[in-house]
Design a binder for these strands. Structure first.
Lengths: 240, 240
DNA sequence: CGACTTCTTGAGGAACGTCAACCGCAGTGG
DNA sequence: CCACTGCGGTTGACGTTCCTCAAGAAGTCG
């Protein structure tokens, strides 16, 4: 029994301590964990499963285009339910780890039984899927924005909502960028060079500061919010 | 009672005759319809509800950016479950009709009770949400593609999957474009002029034909598939 | 220390957005 | 019956932007 082993490890709280997972009743948790297998991943690893819960780290749905371009069309963080079951298309993409991660893979058929037998599990799934849809709509909006500055500003706010992103700063004006620049670029649909240039320009304009490589200080949150919502600062509209 | 009235209208099959809706048991359907209100919409109307099922027509989540740009970040067609409940962001956008549509709005709290009491309804919701997530991932990939030709090819295949899109052509090589050009443009993140130019170029290259304004004949489906999957035909790579 | 990856910076060109005008059509009212 | 109006779609010229290609800087791991 995998979960018993885990409990013996002293890592008893198998499911994330976030809603909706910490709202489940004990029998539901038990049944869900019966269908679960913990997988440890390092950067680049394929999770090899289409259903599960991210325990730590960062995963993404990666798609390699026929001409070599790479796209990360969805990001998943700690506590996220990953559901790639509805796969009518041929190229659904692979679920890969962007860093050291732990993934609680769920057996599809047993998980399905679990959702039909436990209303709270079904509810948790619906809540999670609805959450992800909202994020995907935001992301689609970012991509349609087209200007890297807006996409970047928006994705910074997205990262700010990641669990643990605001650890150590109460006001939340420091954001950790949890994945490398190249992955950010693949996520917002631009090239790494463009991400670099965009960051440097935001820095020049005093909207953000980069104390460390993977940290961003939001110096002017209202302006950044405006930017993320479409107040596009094209060349002509630099200061205004 | 709204549904009794409808039944009296002779329009008894209230839910779409597609999976997963036609798989529900009678009591589930009855409970679900108790929470439902049918709304008739014309182009531009706001549905005014964040949860429901599209009975006919086409709806979209529209977002107006602060500088006037307009983005359709999700499309919904006949039989789709629309769930905008997870709205942590301020600007979630509006659910609007792109054409004459009928929308079966569901009361949120009563629908929630319904999903918790009927496992098959919960399952239908999960299936639908998972389906939409897959579509959103595809869409995000399209948008990240960046070249309008690829996005357009991809969106044509998306339209081909719409119910009724292949009515009258067995092979499915004719696709109906169910929404105006401008909406297509807002959906794939480009300008109407670019959509027009992309269509004309695909036509010039004999990949598609445009018998009517709202119809596309896929003359070379394999090539279009390649295009949609990222075999990008930039200026230099015209024939190869 | 050296090979590697990640990030950055620069110069040049292709591509899409912008602006403007035009076409065809439907609805409207004189 | 026909001019007027508005809307959706198309076409063209032009400019900004971002991708491409290339090289260098900085940090990491062997």
């Amino acid at each position: 029994m995998q979960e018993l082993q885990r409990v013996a490890d002293g890592r008893a709280p198998f499911l994330p301590d976030y809603p909706p997972w910490n709202r489940l009743t004990a029998p539901s948790v038990s049944d869900l964990l019966d269908a679960a297998t913990m997988i440890s991943l390092t950067r680049g690893d394929d999770a090899g499963a289409g259903l599960g819960i991210v325990i730590s780290g960062a995963l993404a749905v990666e798609r390699e285009l026929s001409d070599g371009r790479r796209i990360l069309c969805a990001l998943f963080h700690e506590g996220d339910l990953v559901d790639l079951r509805r796969t009518e298309r041929a190229r659904q993409g692979d679920l890969i780890a962007l860093k050291e991660s732990e993934f609680l893979a769920l057996d599809e058929s047993r998980a399905e039984i679990c959702t039909s037998e436990h209303a709270d599990v079904a509810r948790a799934f619906i809540v999670q899927l609805g959450d992800h849809l909202a994020r995907m709509r935001d992301h689609a909006t970012d991509l349609a924005f087209k200007t890297p500055f807006e996409s970047l500003a928006s994705v910074l706010f997205e990262f700010r909502r990641w669990p643990g992103a605001d650890s150590g700063n109460p006001g939340g004006s420091t954001v950790r960028i949890p994945i490398p620049r190249g992955d950010v670029a693949d996520y917002i649909g631009v090239k790494p060079e463009t991400v670099s240039r965009a960051i440097r320009r935001l820095e020049r304009e005093r909207l953000i500061g980069i104390p460390e490589q993977d940290q961003v200080f939001l110096a002017d949150i209202p302006s950044m919010r405006r930017l993320a919502n479409g107040g596009r600062p094209r060349q002509s509209t630099r200061r205004s």
